[in-house]
Nucleic acid binder design. Structure first.
Lengths: 122, 122
DNA sequence: TGCTTATATGAACTGTTGGTCATATGATAC
DNA sequence: GTATCATATGACCAACAGTTCATATAAGCA
């Protein structure tokens, strides 16, 4: 994190050297997009509750439906979003489909996010 | 992460003991909501690019406007969202307003998210 | 074979969100 | 004071996202 050079804006106001140096270092637009996409998938109450549940145990769709108290279709739709984002994985077992978290980065993100949230309350 | 007990669904299909135990451990609905809200704010391409830039240097609004190549109003609107979520902070300096990240949890989240994203590509 | 159960999916509806335009505020400079 | 510049904000609109309803698929059971 470099220090900001104190000077008034020329012309169009901005600080050309700082802007140039930041521009060089910034993420490309593709990675930024993918990152935003990941957070967007995490940015829904239903999906967070699903992940919170799956963090504790592998569960089938109707378990999740019962836990969340919402209808099965809504849960399935959200599971699809999570599957497409490769945040959860599923395996078939008889009539049921069992879901679980796809990797441990996700629990890390959720844990870190929780810390930030509780930090803000102090 | 406890193991799932293999048994077929009774009645309404679900596994009552597992569901009960998960239910006990799950986040309350308020924390889940706050967490989802945090990720929702991070889940936008423009805001991620703003954070990526601010991670590298404190910047004024017109710097960001130039960096992102979008109009000033759009940038200000998104800065407001980030400010309301206490993800960035601002200080006045003459005519300018300088923005920076509000705490290091945020850069941690972004870093961790990036790792996850690049992990998926392998 | 048909019947039931678990899950998935498509269509439609509704609420939300990101951007644009126009305008307001607030500070500096003249 | 007035003019100008940097930023903020309100109204509006188009695109999108989450839920529901109805229906499809697919497995197990009689």
């Amino acid at each position: 994190m470099q220090e900001h050079i104190e000077e008034s804006c020329q012309e169009q106001c901005f600080h050309p050297e700082v802007v140039e140096s930041v521009r060089r270092d910034m993420l490309g637009s593709v990675p930024a997009d993918e990152l935003a996409q990941l957070f967007k998938v995490l940015g829904d109450n239903t999906r967070i509750r699903i992940l919170d549940a799956l963090y504790r145990s592998e569960l089938c769709v109707c378990d999740l439906t019962a836990l969340l108290g919402m209808n099965q279709s809504a849960v399935s739709h959200q599971l699809r979003v999570l599957r497409d984002a490769r945040i959860v994985k599923s395996r078939k077992q008889g009539k049921n489909v069992l879901y679980s978290l796809d990797d441990e980065h996700i629990s890390g993100l959720v844990r870190m996010g929780s810390e930030h949230v509780s930090e803000l309350k102090r």
